[in-house]
Structures are given as C-alpha cells and as structure tokens.
Amino acid sequence: MTETSAAPAPVRTRPSLRERIAAAWDSDIAYSFRHSPVTIVAAVIVLLLLFGAIFGPWIAPQNPFDPGSLNLMEGKTAPLTPNMFTGKTFLLGTDDQGRDVFSTILYGSRVSLFVGFAAVAFSMVLGVTLGLIAGYRGGWLDSVIMRTADIQLTFESLLVALMIFGFTRTLIPPGSQNELAVPVLILAIGLAEWPQYARTVRGVTMVERNKEYVQAARVIGLHPAIIMMRHVLPNVLGPVLVIATLGLALAIIAEATLSFLGVGVPPTQPSLGTLIRVGQEYIVSGEWWILLFPAVTLLALALAVNLLGDWLRDVLNPKLR
C-alpha cells in the first residue's frame, strides 16, 4: 500500500505568530470581548490586582511584615495625611503597628490569589479526573463517585472546608502548623469544591463517549486512559473553564472567610481576609481605612473574576449565540 502514491508529505508550516495573533483577534471570543465594556473593565481590574500581587514586593513602599521596617510612632496614620511625628504620608494610611495599608494589601492579595488559584487547580484536577472516570466508565464506579459528590454537595462547601481544615490540623504536629497552614487551606478549599467539576465533567463525558469519534478511538484499541485524556478531555474543557473562573472567586472568598474567622492563614502571612478581620476591630474607633481598603480590594477582585466567569459562560454557550 505504501508504494501506491508518491504524494508530497503535508507541509508542516505552523501559522506564524503574527498570523495567530490576527486569527485570535478575529475570533468570536475576542469579538465578544471587545464589545463588552463590563468584561474589559473586569479584565483590567483582575490584571491590575494580579500584577500587584505578583510584583508586590517590588512595588510596596515597605515590607509590612519585616518588624525592622516598622515604626510604631507611625501607627494609625490616616490616608494621605502627614504623620504627626515623622511627617511621612501614606497613600492608604497605616494600621496600629504602623504598617502601610497599601503594602499590606499588596502582600495580602498575594496570599489570597495564591490560595485561590492553587485551590481551584487542586479541585479542578481532582474533580475533572473523577468526573471523567465516572462518566466514561459508568457502572458501580460512577455510582460510588457521584453519590460521594452528592452527599458532599448537601453540605455547605464552606462548612466542608472548615471540617477538613479542622480535621487536617489535628494531624499536624503543633510545631509546623504555621508553615503548613497555607497548604492545608488549599487542600480544604479544594476538597470542598471538587463535586462541581465532577458533576459537570461527568455529564459532558457521558454525551461525548457515545459520539463516534470516541468509538473510532476504541476501535483502534487505544487504552481508556488515553481516550479520556486525548479525546474526551479537550472536548469537556469549555464548561470546566467557566466553573474554574467562577470557582476562583468562590475560593478567594472562602479563603477570606476562613481567615476572617481566624482559622485560615497565620498572622505572619496575612491574606485579605486576615486584614479585614484585623481592620474591623478599629472601625468603631474611627480608623476606617484599615478595614475599608482591604475589603474594597477583596470585593473588586471577587466581582471582577465573577464577571469574567459570567462572560466566559455566555461566550462558550452555543445556545446563547
């Protein structure tokens, strides 16, 4: 059969970078993005906060968690008002320890975003894997996985996260609790959210597995794991992306809630939630900026991520087009 036709092999000219950018600019998603001002604003906010979080240590006027750089005399300075002792002004004021609120927000959103992304990645990997297996294999394995997910979904996910957090902490020796607080938090929030992914992925997988391209792959004799990874997974990623974006906002808020309750990150590496908890102690005594600015940052972050998720859901939903 090989000697039958001396056809030229396909020329593997991948499109150039400029062509690819042009194609991306013309795509439906880019078009919808360009014509949605709300989404553009949301994306700008998310990018600014991401930029601030990533480059925080270089942007921040001070390292608020290095005791050497703090001056107690500068405590509780109002925003844009010169300190009565040193004469220094702070953009967003300082807290009781003399920490620059702008710097704490940069450092705090770093922790919040890291925990949020890591928790989403963890629950996504777990949920997508279990959902793929449940949907593709079916049978008793499907029942076991999905009933577990159903049972977990009957509890409020924050409650589940609290339970997992509390349970895991008892397993950790007291000496290393502070270092392991962030991983434990990621584990707790991630474990609380996996059923969302599993349910969606299972549903889409059950549709895809009966399509003929999956059957064609089975006729070739590919291993089920390869079929799931190479054929089914790319076709279920659309809805997963939407849940992951919306889940990021949820995870950030969950982390903030846990930290606000005092069970999240340790005081040595505070997140936005911790800052809000600390700040609310001063709201009655008039130092409103300690609470307000971290809270507004958290609100803007969660809202912007949510708006992006909503937009993504609409764009990827063929029924709405």
């Binding site: 090989t2 039958t4 036709s5 056809a7 030229p8 092999a9 396909p10 020329v11 593997r12």
Partner: peptide, 17 residues
C-alpha cells in the same frame, strides 16, 4: 507525516489539508 500525506492523496484530498 509522509504516510498521512499519502493517505490524504489516496482519498483524493490535498495533503496540505
């Protein structure tokens, strides 16, 4: 790649497809 081009030609498609 060469074989794929051959197969595409066999079913009367352009190998560049």
């Amino acid at each position: 790649q060469h074989r794929v081009g051959e197969l595409l030609a066999l079913v009367r498609l352009d190998p560049r497809d």
